[in-house]
Amino acid sequence: MKNIRLLYINLILGTILMACEYNVENEDVKVDDQCEAEVSYSNTLSPLINVNCMPCHNGDGSYPLAPDLRTYGAVESLAGLIKEVTQSRRMPKNGNLTNAEISAIKCWVDQGAMNN
């Protein structure tokens, strides 16, 4: 009887602890949600992609699961995913985007991912 009670207590505590999981991975990431000016693909996004993404996303097949981001069409078709992975800082792998650059990507996507 004592063992069963102990088992139930452990199950209940384990369930409570699992339900209270706290994701601290992105705790200190502060991305500006305000988009004051229109973000340009050619002046802002394309240079960011060329510097930060081309080592893996250059279409040469070295990274088979990395989509080719050399054209506007490819970037535009993945705009939502690009916003998500940069805001969560899963990409770029070297993690060297500034908060302002991450905000610019978010704004460009939120503004319709225009070819401007």
Results as ranks from 00 to 15, higher is better:
residue 78 L to E: 12
residue 95 G to M: 10
residue 102 I to N: 02
residue 106 K to T: 09
residue 3 N to G: 04
residue 39 V to I: 15
residue 45 L to H: 08
residue 69 L to W: 11
residue 9 I to L: 12
residue 104 A to L: 09
residue 17 L to C: 15
residue 63 Y to P: 01
residue 37 A to F: 03
residue 104 A to G: 05
residue 66 A to V: 05
residue 107 C to I: 00
residue 115 N to L: 06
residue 35 C to Q: 03
residue 22 Y to A: 13
residue 32 D to P: 02
residue 44 T to L: 01
residue 59 G to A: 07
residue 25 E to D: 12
residue 1 M to K: 07
residue 10 N to E: 03
residue 45 L to D: 02
residue 96 N to W: 05
residue 47 P to M: 02
residue 113 A to L: 03
residue 91 M to E: 09
residue 63 Y to M: 10
residue 1 M to W: 05
residue 107 C to F: 00
residue 99 N to E: 15
residue 44 T to C: 01
residue 109 V to D: 05
residue 95 G to V: 02
residue 73 G to V: 04
residue 64 P to G: 12
residue 101 E to V: 06
residue 88 S to C: 02
residue 33 D to K: 14
residue 75 V to F: 06
residue 106 K to Q: 07
residue 26 N to A: 13
residue 49 I to F: 11
residue 64 P to S: 13
residue 86 T to Q: 08
residue 105 I to V: 15
residue 79 A to G: 07
residue 1 M to C: 06
residue 103 S to F: 00
residue 108 W to V: 01
residue 59 G to C: 08
residue 89 R to C: 06
residue 77 S to Y: 02
residue 7 L to C: 08
residue 13 L to D: 01
residue 65 L to R: 10
residue 77 S to P: 03
residue 43 N to P: 00
residue 16 I to D: 00
residue 37 A to E: 09
residue 99 N to R: 03
residue 64 P to R: 13
residue 109 V to E: 15
residue 109 V to F: 06
residue 79 A to H: 03
residue 81 L to Y: 08
residue 87 Q to L: 15
residue 105 I to G: 08
residue 74 A to S: 15
residue 40 S to C: 02
residue 16 I to W: 00
residue 60 D to M: 07
residue 110 D to L: 10
residue 8 Y to V: 13
residue 63 Y to E: 11
residue 54 M to V: 03
residue 64 P to W: 09
residue 79 A to V: 02
residue 34 Q to R: 12
residue 30 K to S: 10
residue 73 G to K: 08
residue 35 C to I: 07
residue 40 S to A: 02
residue 9 I to F: 13
residue 56 C to I: 04
residue 90 R to N: 12
residue 80 G to E: 14
residue 109 V to A: 11
residue 67 P to M: 06
residue 26 N to C: 02
residue 62 S to H: 03
residue 67 P to Q: 12
residue 14 G to Q: 09
residue 18 M to W: 07
residue 90 R to F: 01
residue 61 G to T: 09
residue 100 A to D: 14
residue 77 S to C: 05
residue 35 C to V: 07
residue 30 K to W: 04
residue 23 N to R: 10
residue 19 A to Q: 05
residue 64 P to D: 10
residue 50 N to V: 00
residue 109 V to R: 10
residue 30 K to Y: 13
residue 24 V to G: 06
residue 45 L to V: 15
residue 103 S to Y: 00
residue 44 T to A: 04
residue 81 L to Q: 11
residue 25 E to A: 08
residue 71 T to K: 13
residue 10 N to L: 15
residue 90 R to L: 11
residue 6 L to Y: 13
residue 63 Y to C: 08
residue 11 L to R: 02
residue 102 I to A: 11
residue 48 L to M: 13
residue 19 A to G: 15
residue 55 P to A: 10
residue 70 R to I: 05
